[in-house]
Amino acid sequence: MEKTVNQKAWLLVLPVLVLVAFSAVIPLMTVVNYSVQDTFGNNKFFWAGLEWFDEMLHSERMWNALGRQLLFSAIILAIEVPLGILVALSMPKRGFWASVCLVLMALPLLIPWNVVGTIWQIFGRVDIGLLGYTLENLGIPYNYTQHLFAAWATVIVMDVWHWTSLVALLAYAGLQSIPDAYYQAAKIDQASRWSVFRYIELPKMQGVLMIAILLRFMDSFMIYTEPFVVTGGGPGNSTTFLSIDLVKMALGQFDLGPAAAFSIMYFLVILLICWVFYTVMTNLEKRDGVS
């Protein structure tokens, strides 16, 4: 059969194109517009070329923020992924308690970011917060407004509290999809608990864990609200992550050009890391053959 060739198909994708244009492309182009020009207000723009990009690439402040950001993402992934798996493994598989656990696990995910920030901001305060007050009275120096370590610990624990559920729920879904026969066969083969995890559960969770890691990476790399509410980026600049710095630059200092240039680089970095990650993971799957 011969296929009819005509241009009508474009009409069918037009609504989507328009929608994407308004929701993504046009706003992004605004940023691009700012990034190559300089403005002094009154809607007067002067061509700046790649100057802002050059400036940002040599800005120590930005490199430091990027370093802190990478460290933060690495730490929370290192904690949340194993912890999430552990939680998923210990959740009941079926029955009444399975539903209860699911609801409890989903609760932190339903709380708005700034509320989470506020909860931990108060919880950690040394004068009235349950956590801060207790630690301080136990003789452990803890004050997230003054100590670098306390600030980082608070921000990390808060993120773990907020987002481990997501990893756990995804891992749990992966575990639920394993047929009983696998566990039965493992029993017959006298496999140890570790072997069951290593050879049955982990391979079957691979797909969902990939999604979990990807989601958590992207989200943690763009984190803004919670640390902003708790530490405001302090003490000093110690918890000033990329987004916080970006907002400071764009809205605090009104340096729109550099901020726009930086936004674009920020976006490209996330895209690059996700692409590398995704390619590596899918290649691993291909190498093993797809079942």
């Binding site: 026969a181 039965q184 066969a185 050879y199 391979p203 079957k204 079942s291």
Partner: peptide
């Protein structure tokens, strides 16, 4: 030793 209706292999 028991063999089940649907194949159980250790994928990796």
């Amino acid at each position: 030793a028991q063999v089940f209706q649907f194949p159980v292999v250790y994928d990796t």
